[in-house]
């Protein structure tokens, strides 16, 4: 069986996890068109390469982020949601400063 590492609970069988889709920006629900909103809800980019995804460790109800290569199906890293967004904010700040 495949093993995925939950950032809180450690390595577990893949059967304990539920895929939650790609990490993507939510359009403003007040101003989004129907097309934008349904794209957000139902469509994925399905990019071949490294992507960030939501995963759920079902027994603990822990949502976290996995960095996965969709071509090789290798999970490069898993991290808590806090870690992911802290890193992203830092990267954005660095970009602004540059």
């Amino acid at each position: 069986m495949k093993i995925l590492t939950c950032p809180i609970n450690g390595p577990r069988n893949i059967s304990e996890f539920v895929w939650g889709g790609e990490v993507k920006e939510m359009p403003d629900p007040a101003t989004a068109t129907d097309a934008e909103w349904s794209e957000y809800l139902f469509l994925d980019n399905n990019r071949a390469g490294e992507i960030f995804e939501w995963w759920l460790h079902a027994p603990t109800n822990t949502w976290f982020i996995a960095h996965r290569n969709t071509v090789t199906d290798v999970v490069l890293e898993t991290m808590t949601v806090d870690t992911y967004f802290a890193r992203r904010a830092k990267a954005e700040r660095a970009e602004e400063e540059a």
Binding site: N9, R12, S15, E16, A58, P59
Partner: peptide, 8 residues
Amino acid sequence: QTSIAKMS
């Protein structure tokens, strides 16, 4: 917190 006998 895990799956035991297929149950959380």
